[in-house]
Structure formats: C-alpha cells, structure tokens
Design a protein around this nucleic acid. Structure first.
Lengths: 188, 188
DNA sequence: CACCATTTTAGCACTTGGTACTAATATCAG
DNA sequence: CTGATATTAGTACCAAGTGCTAAAATGGTG
C-alpha cells in the first residue's frame, strides 16, 4: 500500500527530522519506492543529503561558542550577550515543559533558563548561584516563547559577588522576575 | 622546517580535537607532508576519518538533545509523602548534572528537585509556585545523593496560599534551603 | 662510506552516499 | 485515448576516504 506523493513527502520530512542519520536507500525501502523517488522528493522539499544534514547537526554544537560556558549546559538559546553587562536568551515552551493537567509550565524551567543566563552573563571562568529570590508573575503556557533578559546590577569585587536581575517575558508580558546573587570563582 | 613524526602526531591530535571538520588534504598542507603520511598518522593514532568524526559529534549532539528533555516529570524520586504536611525525595547527581569545568552541580537541578517536591506535597488538584527565596549553602558534586525534605509551614485558605520550606542535604550537610510560596488551584 | 630500518611518498582499485542528467515506463484524470 | 504527472532506471561523476603495493628519501650505526 503506497502513499500519495504528498503524504509520502510529509512523512519524509518528519522521518528525517526525527532521524537525520538515515540514508536515501533506507528511506526508499521504508517507503517502498525507488531511491530516485526519494532523491526527487528531497529536491522538491530542499532537504540536503545525509552528509550535509549530519554536518549541520554537528556544527550546531561546535559553531556557536559562548565564551563563558559550553552551550550545551545552558537552558534556552542565548541570542545576545554582553559579558558582565547583560544577556538575552529564548526558550520555547513545549508540551514537555508543562503540567498535563492545565498546560502551565513548571516553574523550574523558568528558573533554569534564568539561572543559566545569570551564569552565562558573568565574564568569568565559572560562576555559582549563592542566593536567589524569584517571583512567578504570570503562568506560561505551551507554545509560549520566553525571552529572558539578565542585567548585571552591581559587582562587589571584595566579596567576589555579583548581583543580577533576570526578567522573563512572553510577548511583552512579564512572567518571571528573579534576583540572583552570584559567586565568582576568580581563579585560573 | 618539518616536525618529527612524534611532534607532528601530537599536533595532529590537538588540531583534530580542536576542529574535527578538517580533511586529510587540509591537514597535509598545514603540516607540509603528503596526504598518505596523514593517513598513516591517523591509523597509528587510531583517529577515524572525517565523516566518522563528524557523525560522532552529531550523534553526541543529538543524544544530548534527547537527554535534556526528561525535565517534564517530577525531578527526584519521592520516597515519603504526608500530604499537606511534609515530603522527602532523593536525587542522585551524575556527570550530566554538573559543570564540566569543576564538577559542581548546576543550581537549577537542586531548585527543580525542591520545587517538584513543594508541588507534590500540596494536597490539591494542582499547585503553582508564586514566590521563592533560595540559598545554595554548599556546592554539590557528581556522585552526591541529595535528600530534600519539604515541610508545610503555614496555610492561608483565604488567599489559597501555602508556605513550604525545603531543605536539601548531602550526608547530613545542608546544601540548599528554599522557601516556596505556593498557589493552590482549588478545583477546576 | 655502506647498509638497513624507518619514514615518507606515490599510485591504483574500490567504497559510500550522494549529484546531475537523460530517458524510459507507469499511473491516473479528463 | 491522450497528456500530464509520477516513478524508475541508468550513466557519468564527486568527495573523502580505505587497502594495498611499491618506490623513494632519510637517518643512524658500525
């Protein structure tokens, strides 16, 4: 039982999205069509070939370097950073982040984004959170895109301490506010 | 001025470590040797070819992405619960929870465990965190087992508000203290 | 210096997972 | 039945290799 061209192409998209490591040959056999058909499909959908796909997956991790911290440890995607001054990150809330019951995001995701950003904005080998006061202003739902902005308020070089305020918004509505007192580890 | 075989191979290791996306041809020209020499070097050092290297970087990347998702459930294992009074949970800290740089657990994992527990202890349809003040008392390392205890301090039925204190310990050392002001969603 | 081992280079056939292109065949709709 | 669309087949070619053989170049030792 073969799919229509449209259905197949839709499935193809999803399949490759789910597993970018699949070859045309494997795709051909799972869809019971010839390799050439798969190639045509990929062209129409402008899906690159296996190696390019793999490379782009690999490059994602390698290409963008945030100086203060390896990217994979940061929750949310940092889109702007001015070390020791301010930083902005984006986190898209999906079904995975919310309570099944009411679709409201669990608090620790907002905290994780804000805390990650507070760590990242500090221009140092490594920073640890010492104290924090946070307020969940408004519930966040699945589908929302949280934009968190961290601002360095003050630095106390004596105490190796830095005060940061993170404000997270969804479409200009403030949903979260957190003050973070960070400890700087100024060693090499 | 050519390097000795040993020096070249050492540099080769570092170069590929730094940039796994480099071809043998490029390597050959940077070290002023033939492509074949590079191949021999790679064999002796058992460094895989470009495509395999890229693929492993990508696979690692892809795996991480999956790994970062299990945040949707309760963080930590609840081992004792007395609804509306107190609850205890355990979280084992692994390499995945810590900063690669110094092996110290990222703060949001401690917060997530405490926050999850605060939500769970409330005997209600669902609870949301409203405000929270937290203190990271002592760094937690990979291999540590965090035992978090949540105690309900007070209930204000008028305001649908509950105050909870969570104390997390590693072998009787307090590592984290958090006060959580929770909002109760009475029936929907 | 000569000799032998190590190191380096060269060349060829073959592999994967493709691209680019041409051409033939199926399938379906009006 | 005729066209258009969709599918399959086949060829030449590419990148970045592996595997293998063989010839040079280099280097240290007696």
């Amino acid at each position: 039982m073969k799919y229509t061209k449209k259905d197949r192409q839709q499935l193809l998209l999803e399949t490759i999205e789910k597993n970018p490591f699949i070859t045309d040959e494997q795709l051909a056999s799972t869809f019971n069509v010839s390799v050439q058909t798969i190639r045509l499909d990929r062209m129409e959908l402008s899906i690159p070939e296996l190696r390019v796909r793999i490379k782009s997956v690999a490059a994602h991790n390698f290409g963008e370097e945030v100086k203060s911290l390896p990217l994979n440890e940061v929750i949310g995607e940092i889109i702007d950073i001015d070390l020791d001054k301010q930083a902005i990150s984006i986190l898209d809330i999906t079904q995975d982040h919310v309570f099944a019951r009411n679709g409201i995001a669990r608090g620790h995701h907002l905290f994780a984004q804000a805390n990650s950003l507070a760590v990242a904005v500090i221009n140092d080998e490594l920073a640890l959170t010492r104290k924090s006061t946070i307020t969940f202003v408004k519930p966040v739902k699945a589908g929302d895109r949280i934009i968190a902005k961290a601002v360095v308020l003050s630095k106390d070089t004596e105490k190796n301490s830095t005060l940061i305020e993170v404000t997270s918004k969804v479409e200009n509505d403030t949903v979260f506010i957190g003050q973070f007192s960070m400890y700087r580890m100024t060693k090499s």
